[in-house]
Design a protein around this nucleic acid. Structure first.
Length: 663
RNA sequence: GCGCCCGUAGCUCAGUUGGAUAGAGCAUCGGACUUCUAAUCCGGCGGUCGGAGGUUCGAAUCCUCCCGGGCGCGCCA
């Protein structure tokens, strides 16, 4: 049972007479929380202090009054009022035992279906087609998948949507590359690799030309900034000091930009083939854009090529998703919305929401639900008549609300796009989509060990596939080393080792990402994410594998044990503090799922699983299972172990992490 | 110039819309293996929550200022 939730509903009626005018009971019920220290019991209610202020009563008296009025004693021991007015709750042992027995028999492990299931679309992953996925896609993919799984378990109708970039400027580059640089044999043999090569080539050349063109200006800027720094008088006051430090920073930024441009130029000029191509195709950037425009305008050949390119690219993406165990329910790429875009802009213009500005169409003066201005303007049509991703996002809103009946739309996209999604949501509301809950589920950047965005040593972004390969490779080394050092010699064959390494390696990457608060940046560290100790996937997988090991050792079939326990009306016995803590922790699974879904924070769930694994270790240490004194105690403890394994399994599954029975 | 975010133990991070003595992991130090899997467990050390004011019964959390860092600012996504 979700005791926290139960306590909230029990306190609600007792609270009602003391509520200040116009305030909702929920905000006070939210002050019922897990006890921050076991000495205070299992849960604590903190609402007496703020309520007492309004009621002009001593908080301890009010607390006692509310406790007396609340119907609690069938679940909790007599509550204690402590300190300035905290109410401490302790679950009755007999209730805890009975509820734990129920949990053991419950397929949903106590997680209820929400009362009002919603249709929720979740935009996540959303890579560009024909550009290899890279480390930048990791968080949206991993967090988005976990968010979908958690909402789905809660009973919502979740539509995980892969908003593919299948219509953008990269296709113009690929079309140009295909028409000019194609290696036919390579394309026949492996279209995706060849298309990726073509994209890279065109992109490199395009960057080269741009860098060449920008270089004089950049040099000028660097000179000017350096000169300005040199000319600046010694700062006389704080303001001058700040200005100087800012100037120095700008000089540094300019130098970096110049260095980056030089690197791009050097990369091409060092390669005679590339240099020749660059010279032969001086206008390739503009021509690539023209190819994109032709595609968008319905050019027959480009359209045919686009249709030819797409399937193998999608299949390549699917290979990665399959490996990661990730599924989308829908794939409405940008191209899907293309026919609706003109209508979207026209409608916004008609309704006076959008206006023309310098030939473009923009939406101005957007405000967020709190009435705060959103930085704009929000461009929905370019001067040349082309549409932007904001236009596509608005068409997506219309489609998802009208065709999919979305009650809520979640965007699992990095935090730098906050302004963009604020504009999408604000425009959609002005457009009339007032009943839809738009949520930007934003996340921070993955940093390297140096604290800067995660790149290879040479400064390139890291491909997702090679990242996964490296994780599995490192995991295999750990698995093998551990297995080799087992006291009775290795237990696993090469196949098993490979399978475990896959689960541990990929699990490690996912878990490290999910265990951090999604809003913060985090440092990517192989050693930390694959560590066998601490808050890692490996530790969690091991904790569960240990339980499996116990059952193997004891020759006990878990399903049979559970069936017999249920059929016999078996009891859970709480004879030891560690046993009680374990039982309570298992009952908290529903609470953890609820809290994790509240603001879409998978790290709430990882914390819970870590606590559960620790609780099991303590329980396992303190309480003999297979060697328990009596048969009843043995069966009770095995049921606790079995339920622990099921909770770990269900929890890891919610995170998209595989479990392994032996490691 | 405008806007958003961040600063918590040596390191990496939690801290649940203001609650009791600020937590965890790693590292470090000390203990526990003829084991129910030691990929483990138990214990110790470690903090002016960037700084200064303010709000109140109570602040890491809210407000103001300062210091330090990151990011975003019409026709890329």
């Amino acid at each position: 049972m979700d005791f926290l939730d139960a306590a909230r509903s029990r306190f609600a009626p007792a609270l009602a007479p003391h509520l200040p005018e116009g305030e909702s009971v929920e905000s006070f019920l939210d002050l019922i929380r897990p006890a921050r220290d076991a000495q205070f019991g299992d849960f604590q209610a903190n609402f007496a202090m703020p309520l007492a202020k309004r009621a002009k009563k001593p908080p301890r008296d009010l607390a006692a009054e509310i406790v007396a009025a609340a119907d609690l004693t069938d679940l909790f021991d007599q509550p204690e009022v402590a300190g300035p007015g905290f109410i401490n709750l302790r679950v009755r042992d007999d209730v805890l035992a009975a509820e734990t027995a129920k949990l053991a028999a419950d397929e949903r492990l106590g997680v209820p279906i929400v009362e009002n299931p919603q249709t929720i679309t979740v935009d996540f992953s959303s890579p560009n087609v024909a550009k290899p996925m890279h480390v930048g896609h990791l968080r949206t993919t991993v967090i988005g998948d976990a968010v979908c799984r958690i909402l789905r378990l809660r009973g919502h109708n979740v539509i995980g949507d892969n908003h593919l970039g299948d219509w953008g400027t990269q296709f113009g580059m690929i079309l140009y590359g295909y028409k000019n640089f194609r290696d036919d044999a390579a394309y026949q043999a492996d279209p995706v690799t060849e298309l990726a090569r073509l994209y890279r080539t065109v992109n490199t050349l395009s960057d080269y030309h741009a860098a060449k063109k920008k270089r004089p200006k950049l040099t000028e800027v660097v000179e000017a900034k350096r000169q300005a720094v040199a000319d600046a008088p010694p700062p006389a006051d704080k303001k001058a000091k700040k200005a100087l430090s800012k100037l120095k920073q700008e000089a540094g930024t300019a130098e970096e930009a110049l260095a980056a441009a030089d690197a791009k130029i050097a990369a091409v000029e060092a390669d005679t083939d590339l240099a020749a191509l660059a010279a032969a195709h001086p206008t390739l950037a503009a021509e690539s854009r023209a190819e994109t425009a032709k595609l968008h305008a319905g050019d027959a050949e480009n359209r045919r090529l686009w249709e030819e390119f797409l399937p193998p690219c999608l299949a390549a993406l699917q290979t990665i998703y399959d490996r990661l165990g990730i599924q989308h329910d829908a794939t409405y790429g940008e191209s899907f919305y293309q026919p609706m875009l003109a209508g979207v802009v026209d409608e916004l213009l008609e309704k006076g929401i959008a206006e023309e500005s310098d030939g473009a169409v923009v939406v101005r003066d957007n405000v967020d639900p709190a009435g705060k201005p959103v930085p704009g303007p929000f461009v929905v049509r370019k001067t040349d008549g082309a549409f932007l991703y904001g236009t596509t996002d608005l068409a997506t809103v219309k489609h998802h609300v009208e065709e999919l009946n979305a009650d809520a739309m979640l965007y699992v996209v990095d935090s730098r796009q906050g302004d963009h999604f604020a504009n999408v949501a604000a425009t959609a509301r002005r457009w009339g989509f007032n009943d839809t809950d738009f949520r930007h589920v934003s996340f921070g950047t993955v940093l390297g060990e140096d604290g800067k965005p995660f790149k290879t040593r040479s400064g390139d972004t890291i491909g997702l596939e090679s990242l996964l390969d490296e994780a599995v490779e490192r995991a295999l080394a750990i698995v093998s080393e551990n297995d080799d050092s087992k006291p009775d010699g290795p237990e696993l064959d090469a196949n098993e080792r490979g399978d475990i390494a896959e689960a541990v390696g990929l699990g490690g990457i996912k878990y490290a990402d999910l265990a951090h608060n999604r809003e913060s940046d985090y440092k990517f560290s192989w050693d930390k994410m694959l560590s066998t100790t601490g808050n890692t996937a490996t530790y969690m997988q091991y904790a569960r594998a240990r339980v499996c090991g116990i059952f193997r050792m004891g020759g006990v079939d878990r399903d049979a044990l559970r069936d017999r326990f249920v059929a016999d009306g078996g009891e859970v016995l709480l004879t030891d503090p560690a046993e009680r803590a374990m039982a309570l922790q298992l009952n908290r699974f529903a609470e953890a799922v609820r809290e994790a879904s509240r603001d879409h924070r998978p790290n709430v769930l990882t914390d819970y699983l870590f606590d559960t694994a620790k609780a099991f270790s303590a329980f396992y240490e303190a309480c003999p299972l297979l060697k328990a004194e009596t048969e009843d105690l043995k069966s009770s403890r095995l049921i606790l172990a079995d339920t622990t394994a099921r909770v770990m399994h269900a929890g890891l599954e919610l995170l998209g992490i595989r479990v392994i029975d032996r490691m």
